[in-house]
């Protein structure tokens, strides 16, 4: 757990939602450091702040207070477009509900982040096709999402997250909408990405899923309850 290069460093972060007079503390004074090449599971009961923390780490959301350093850059000071650029280059998102564009083919979906990074069409097609092949979908590049199974859709989403070769991969309940067998197949894919040296952070409330990670961070009521390395792992 004492890896040399911290990629994520948050200090005393809080996130407060104002609901009329009431204040909802989604995160209270959370500090966390994650290094390159780690495989982390965020766990905790519903409403404990997992997604809020994940969005923060993914530069989709900004904290109410506290400091967030990503790869040495102070995220608090970035504007919308600069955040978009970090998300585009450094972060790969995998969502519970896949969030593929329904009209677009698997290939176009995977290409999308490269469109936003300004890559030329030829290079883009090639890179997207290679990435789809690497998740076992070489034969499905021309399929629309509704022509793919749930597991295949999530593979497309993972390919889309990988295609820019980001610094970290963030997955919020990536197996939440899949049956357990398909879920395990997807987890095998994350394990493989980890072995190749990627930094993987995933949110789950299933112990079965969390077991794949090397480090488990447990949240409760917006606080970190425990942060342990996970010895018994595949």
């Amino acid at each position: 757990m004492t890896s040399p290069t911290p990629i994520i460093n948050i200090e005393h972060i809080s996130k407060i939602y104002e609901m009329g007079d009431e204040k909802v503390y989604a995160l209270r004074d959370v500090s966390l450091t994650i290094s390159k090449g780690e495989y982390v599971a965020l766990m905790g009961p519903s409403g404990s702040g997992k997604s809020t923390l994940m969005n923060m780490l993914g530069c989709l959301d900004t904290p109410t207070s506290g400091r967030y350093e990503f790869n040495g850059a102070n995220v608090n000071e970035l504007d919308d477009d600069e955040l978009a650029e970090i998300r585009n280059r450094e972060i790969g998102f995998v969502f519970q509900t896949f969030n593929l564009l329904p009209r677009a083919t698997a290939l176009s979906n995977v290409e999308l982040p490269l469109v936003y990074s300004g890559m030329k069409a030829d290079a883009r097609h090639r890179r997207a096709a290679e990435t789809l092949a690497s998740v076992g979908l070489a034969e499905r590049t021309g399929h629309k999402p509704n022509e793919l199974s749930g597991g295949q859709r999530q593979r497309v989403a993972i390919a889309r997250a990988l295609v820019t070769q980001p610094s970290i991969i963030l997955a919020d309940e990536p197996t939440g909408n899949l049956d357990s067998k398909t879920g395990q197949e997807i987890m095998a894919l994350f394990d493989e990405l980890y072995r190749q040296g990627n930094t993987v952070i995933l949110v789950t409330h299933e112990e079965d899923i969390a077991r794949h990670a090397r480090r488990i961070v447990r949240l409760r009521d917006g606080l970190i309850e425990s942060d342990k390395s996970n010895g018994a792992s595949a």
């Binding site: 993914g58 989709l60 919308d80 477009d81 978009a84 650029e85 998300r87 585009n88 280059r89 998102f93 969030n99 564009l101 999308l112 982040p113 936003y116 990074s117 889309r160 820019t164």
Partner: peptide, 16 residues
Amino acid sequence: TREIGVRKALGARRAW
């Protein structure tokens, strides 16, 4: 709306 959210998460700048 959701599609716009996805595009932004994937790094679409405002201008896009």
